[in-house]
Amino acid sequence: MIDHARDLAAVREATERLLSAAAALDNAAVAAPSRLPGWSRGHVLAHIARNADALANVLEGRPMYRDAATRDADIERDAPRPLAAHLADVRDSGDRLLEAAGRPADWSRVITLRNGVTDVAARVPFRRLVEVELHHVDLGIGRTLEDLPEEFTGREIDFLVERFAGHAEVPPLALTTPDGRHWRTGRPDGTPLTVTGPAPELMGWLAGRRGGASLTTSPAGPLPVLPPL
């Protein structure tokens, strides 16, 4: 069962951890490339802040973003700012989201996200946790996918597997870890390709953060190219 209150506490903790780590940067480091192609660390920090405002919009019954162009323009506008401005914005926008989430609400209600995607409100805190944790790694300031909590990694794989389930561009896949965890995703037809490896590597591949160099396939062959999330 989804525990939105527990996930909100995890969001608060993860945000503080990110802010503490980012505070050790300087303005030059903020302008340097992140691990995401084409984005500086400033782009990543700007996205984290604007995502908090977007999810607050969702919880308060407004569209997540005005439109895709505005979302992208806001990130480009904010990316060049100095470190102090980024830290204040990430903290303040995060506080606004937590405030919106702290009001009495029906957490079983259906909400609408980007591109018409729907979900229950109770999953919004975990969606925010994913943004904070993965983008902390994307900043390239010492935290890796292997540093993420095991429970988080398993839940994120569950989430990504659900997103790719039945996707016409994803072949049938059977994902396994050395400790015996299993997932199925992709198209329901045909014999699945088995992909095996550590959970952080599987998550990184599914999330578009890694190429899956330490993953193995059976039958042996290249990993399929996954569509963007």
Rank of each mutant, 00 (worst) to 15 (best):
L59C: 03
T185Q: 06
T177E: 11
R103K: 15
A46D: 04
A121Y: 05
L175M: 04
H136L: 12
V225K: 15
A52P: 05
T118C: 03
V11N: 06
R35Y: 00
V161C: 11
T191W: 01
V225Y: 00
R91Y: 06
P192R: 04
D89V: 00
E76H: 15
R96N: 05
R6G: 14
G211Q: 13
R50I: 10
A105M: 11
L98Y: 09
I75R: 12
P172V: 02
V11E: 07
E131F: 04
A56Q: 01
A24N: 09
T196G: 08
T144I: 05
N115K: 13
A73F: 09
A85F: 03
A213G: 06
A52Y: 02
V117N: 03
A24E: 13
G42P: 09
R35H: 13
T196P: 01
A21D: 14
T153V: 15
T15F: 00
L8F: 07
G190F: 06
A14G: 03
A52T: 10
V132W: 00
L148P: 03
G142P: 02
L226W: 04
A5M: 03
P224T: 09
A84K: 00
T216S: 14
P171M: 02
L226S: 12
E76A: 15
D158N: 12
R128N: 03
S34R: 04
D53M: 02
P198G: 08
N57Y: 01
G42Y: 11
F126P: 01
T194D: 11
G61H: 01
E133W: 10
W107D: 01
V195A: 01
A14C: 05
T153G: 12
G186R: 01
G197K: 07
T191I: 08
D72F: 14
P224G: 10
L226H: 05
V30E: 06
A14H: 08
G204L: 11
A84M: 13
V137Q: 01
A31D: 11
R91M: 04
D89M: 15
A220P: 06
A22N: 05
H43M: 07
L87H: 13
T153W: 08
P104I: 10
D89Y: 05
W183L: 02
G208Q: 10
G197I: 08
D78T: 03
L175K: 01
G211T: 14
A165Y: 12
R184N: 09
N51T: 15
R114D: 14
G197L: 11
G211S: 12
A54M: 10
P227R: 10
L25Y: 04
R210K: 14
H182T: 15
V124A: 08
G190L: 07
G197W: 06
H47T: 07
R71Y: 13
D179K: 00
G221R: 07
H86K: 10
D92V: 13
G221V: 04
L215M: 09
H135V: 05
S218W: 07
W205N: 09
L83D: 10
I48N: 06
P198I: 00
L134T: 08
R41Q: 08
R62S: 09
A10F: 00
V124S: 08
T153F: 13
R103S: 08
G208Y: 05
G116H: 04
G204H: 09
